[in-house]
Design a protein around this nucleic acid. Structure first.
Length: 115
DNA sequence: TGGGTGACCATAG
DNA sequence: ACTATGGCCACCC
């Protein structure tokens, strides 16, 4: 049974934006939701990320954090420390589940993609 | 059909 | 500074 086209559309959009995040940059759930516009909400972005692990192609979910720059979703990775390691591997400093210089590494799809 | 939940965000007091 | 509440909307009983 196929999922509704609308629903699929939304999930694909989230994954697509996640892939568009440049290396060494991060964005927030709310920013993605806003970029997608109607039919999207910050919670749904997180929900979509939860399903991202079911995807065959890897989704850089570690580049998506909450608006505070906290690694709230680290607990959903294979291991809680994997998210931080992936970020640090890209040059992003993380301390106590908090991204350092979050404003500098923040990537806003509305701004970078030219809304 | 409807209530509970969630990797969130904004506002109010 | 903190907690409480509502909104958001797909998903799972």
């Amino acid at each position: 049974m196929k999922l509704s086209e609308k629903n699929k559309h939304f999930f694909d959009n989230v994954y697509e934006v996640a892939h568009l995040i440049p290396k060494g940059r991060v964005t927030s759930y709310g920013a993605i939701a806003k970029y997608l516009g109607t039919g999207s909400s910050a919670r749904m972005v997180g929900w979509a990320m939860n399903g991202s692990f079911s995807k065959k192609e890897p989704v850089p979910a570690h580049r998506v954090v909450n608006r505070n720059g906290q690694l709230t979703g680290k607990n959903h990775f294979a291991t809680p420390y994997q998210m931080q390691e992936l970020l640090e591997a890209e040059g992003i400093k993380v301390a106590d589940d908090q991204i350092i210089d979050f404003e500098k590494v923040f990537w806003d799809p509305m701004r970078e993609l030219g809304f």
